Amino acid sequence: MQNKQLIISQFSGSLQEATEIIERPISKLGDHEILIQNKFIGINALYDRELYRGRVPYINVQFPYVFGVEAVGEIVAVGNFVRHVQIGQAVSTVKVGTAYQEYQIISEEEAIKIPEATAEYLALNPTGVSGYLALKNTAELKEGETIVVSAASGGLGHIVVQLAKRKNCHVVAICGKPEKVALLKSLNVCDRIINYREENIVEVLSKEYANIIDVGFDSVGTYMFDAFLANLAPLGRLVVSGLATELSAPQFEQISASRVYENIYWKGASVRCFMNHLFREQQQEGREFLFDLYQKGELQVKVDPTSFEGIESIVHASEYLLAGKSCGKVIVKL
Rank of each mutant, 00 (worst) to 15 (best):
residue 5 Q to R: 12
residue 7 I to D: 04
residue 13 G to Y: 02
residue 14 S to E: 01
residue 15 L to D: 00
residue 16 Q to P: 02
residue 20 E to Y: 08
residue 20 E to W: 03
residue 24 R to W: 05
residue 24 R to K: 15
residue 26 I to N: 04
residue 28 K to I: 09
residue 30 G to D: 08
residue 31 D to H: 08
residue 33 E to A: 08
residue 35 L to S: 14
residue 39 K to F: 00
residue 47 Y to I: 08
residue 49 R to W: 03
residue 58 Y to F: 14
residue 64 P to M: 01
residue 68 G to M: 10
residue 68 G to S: 14
residue 70 E to F: 04
residue 78 V to Q: 06
residue 79 G to T: 07
residue 82 V to Y: 06
residue 82 V to P: 01
residue 84 H to V: 06
residue 85 V to F: 02
residue 87 I to T: 11
residue 92 S to N: 14
residue 95 K to D: 01
residue 98 T to D: 08
residue 99 A to E: 05
residue 101 Q to S: 00
residue 103 Y to K: 01
residue 106 I to N: 11
residue 108 E to D: 11
residue 109 E to F: 02
residue 110 E to G: 13
residue 115 P to H: 12
residue 116 E to G: 05
residue 117 A to Q: 03
residue 127 T to D: 03
residue 132 Y to Q: 11
residue 132 Y to C: 08
residue 136 K to N: 13
residue 137 N to C: 12
residue 139 A to L: 11
residue 146 T to C: 07
residue 147 I to W: 10
residue 147 I to V: 15
residue 152 A to I: 10
residue 153 S to H: 04
residue 153 S to F: 01
residue 155 G to K: 00
residue 159 I to K: 00
residue 162 Q to D: 15
residue 162 Q to I: 11
residue 164 A to W: 02
residue 167 K to E: 10
residue 167 K to A: 11
residue 171 V to C: 00
residue 171 V to I: 07
residue 173 A to S: 13
residue 178 P to W: 05
residue 184 L to G: 01
residue 187 L to V: 10
residue 188 N to Y: 01
residue 188 N to H: 10
residue 189 V to T: 12
residue 189 V to S: 07
residue 191 D to H: 14
residue 191 D to F: 12
residue 193 I to K: 08
residue 194 I to L: 10
residue 195 N to R: 05
residue 196 Y to I: 06
residue 198 E to C: 07
residue 200 N to E: 13
residue 204 V to P: 13
residue 217 F to C: 08
residue 219 S to A: 13
residue 219 S to G: 14
residue 222 T to H: 03
residue 223 Y to L: 13
residue 224 M to Y: 09
residue 224 M to G: 01
residue 231 N to E: 05
residue 235 L to M: 08
residue 235 L to V: 08
residue 238 L to K: 03
residue 244 A to P: 00
residue 245 T to S: 15
residue 246 E to Y: 02
residue 247 L to H: 05
residue 248 S to M: 14
residue 249 A to Y: 08
residue 254 Q to T: 15
residue 258 S to Y: 14
residue 264 I to H: 05
residue 266 W to Q: 10
residue 269 A to V: 12
residue 273 C to D: 10
residue 280 R to H: 06
residue 281 E to R: 04
residue 283 Q to G: 11
residue 285 E to A: 12
residue 288 E to F: 09
residue 289 F to V: 06
residue 291 F to S: 14
residue 292 D to S: 15
residue 293 L to N: 06
residue 296 K to V: 09
residue 296 K to P: 08
residue 298 E to P: 06
residue 299 L to C: 05
residue 299 L to W: 03
residue 303 V to P: 04
residue 303 V to D: 00
residue 305 P to E: 15
residue 308 F to R: 05
residue 310 G to W: 06
residue 311 I to A: 06
residue 312 E to H: 12
residue 314 I to N: 02
residue 323 A to R: 10
residue 334 L to D: 06
